[in-house]
Amino acid sequence: MAPDSLGFIFLNAFLINNFVLALFLGLCPFMGVSGKIKTAAPMGAAVTFVMLVASSCAFGINRLLVRFDIEYLRLIAYIAVIASAVQLVEMTIKKFSPTLFRMLGIFLPLITTNCAILGMALFQTFLEYSFIQSLVYSLGAGAGFSLALILMAGMREKLDLANVPDACMGTAAALMIAGLLSLAFMGFAGLGG
């Protein structure tokens, strides 16, 4: 597959360089919301949606910044856009599904400080993707984040029933699982190469 093809870009963000398990982006919500599949899935969807919105905004803003030669304001501009996008998603969810809104709780505003989203915006800029490529990249990144979150939640639900040594309870065990998942994802190396 050609490295610039849309299929490869998606696969790259989705599996090969999975945002959570290979690039360590978005670990806070990954650790925080991966307790149950029921919350993990909507969280993944919310992040994916914010990513799509943020990606298209970031693309436009970067064009403007480059045009006026003020690239040093990029970080501030991006973070402002992401904060606004999160606000938008929050209002949408609150309006259409109050139950979901309660379930996601404090993690919704926390998407602002989810480094996966800022990371995605910065990477798409560094990689000089076109608008369509950026969108596909953000979709892949969001899907990859959701996949990691759901896989993790599935394993942690099982872990709750297992007999774990006291010292390894909680975060330590979760991190170990994340490490194993990450190891498994290393196997996608060279996929579609």
Binding site: A83, S84, Q87, P109
Partner: peptide, 8 residues
């Protein structure tokens, strides 16, 4: 800017 981001 997002004046609304702080909880009301």
């Amino acid at each position: 800017m997002n004046e609304t981001s702080a909880p009301t």
